[in-house]
Simulated scan of single mutants.
Amino acid sequence: MGRWEPGGSDRLREAALELFLERGYEQTTAAEIAQSVGLTERTFYRHFPDKKEVLFGGSVEFRATMVDSVLGVPEGLAPLEVVARALASATEFFPDERREWSRKRWQVLSVNPGLMERELLKMADVAAGIGARLRERGVPEPAATLAAESGMTVFRVAFDVWLQPGERRSMAEIEGEMFAALGAVVGV
């Protein structure tokens, strides 16, 4: 077995996603994932603490990128503009080459309530973090929470569009359009 070959995490992640799509998340074991790429179950657990982390690995980095981007936005802007600029700088987390993997990941999440719940909790945590960063900047309540939650709603809608079959625009472009659409909705 080639358990010491480089790229084990990536190979396991790709294999897991394909097996989840083919057999279902609940019906796929860590041993089957590892075996499909010529690795042992023990090696799987060296890379991932459990099956969920195949789909949610990177969540800590995602949150940090989204939340800490608020710190790099210049002072003096309206709260929603701060969030828009912060999220725009975080779109680098979604390069075009990740789109197909993200589409498949979303297919797996969307048919598994437990995984979808975790995804929604992750997004709520990001919104809470953004709200906290806004308050650190002196944005009072309820403006900080409204801006953070509105920004995450824009992100989720933009992400859904980015995942659509045939969609070719960048996440940054779509997100910018969605913030403009929100402005039109609220009359800004």
Rank of each mutant, 00 (worst) to 15 (best):
G2Q: 13
F155Y: 04
G7M: 08
E92D: 10
E119P: 01
P49R: 14
E14V: 11
F48R: 06
E32K: 09
E81G: 10
E53F: 00
R133S: 02
L12E: 11
R169F: 06
R103P: 01
H47P: 09
V139N: 08
F62S: 05
L21C: 03
D96S: 11
K51V: 03
F94G: 12
E175L: 13
M178G: 00
S150Q: 03
M1E: 13
A84W: 10
H47R: 07
F155W: 12
R46L: 11
V186E: 15
E173N: 10
K51R: 13
P79T: 04
I130D: 08
A184E: 11
V126D: 14
R46K: 08
G138I: 01
A31P: 05
G72R: 12
T28G: 03
R135N: 05
D10K: 15
W4D: 15
E175M: 13
D160H: 12
A86E: 14
E81P: 10
M152F: 08
S69T: 07
D68W: 06
R169G: 08
A128P: 06
T40D: 14
F159S: 11
E14P: 10
F155T: 04
E18I: 07
L77M: 01
N112G: 05
A88G: 07
E14H: 15
A88L: 12
E173Y: 04
W162H: 09
V37E: 08
Q27H: 13
W101M: 04
A128N: 14
P113N: 01
E119A: 13
G114I: 01
T91K: 05
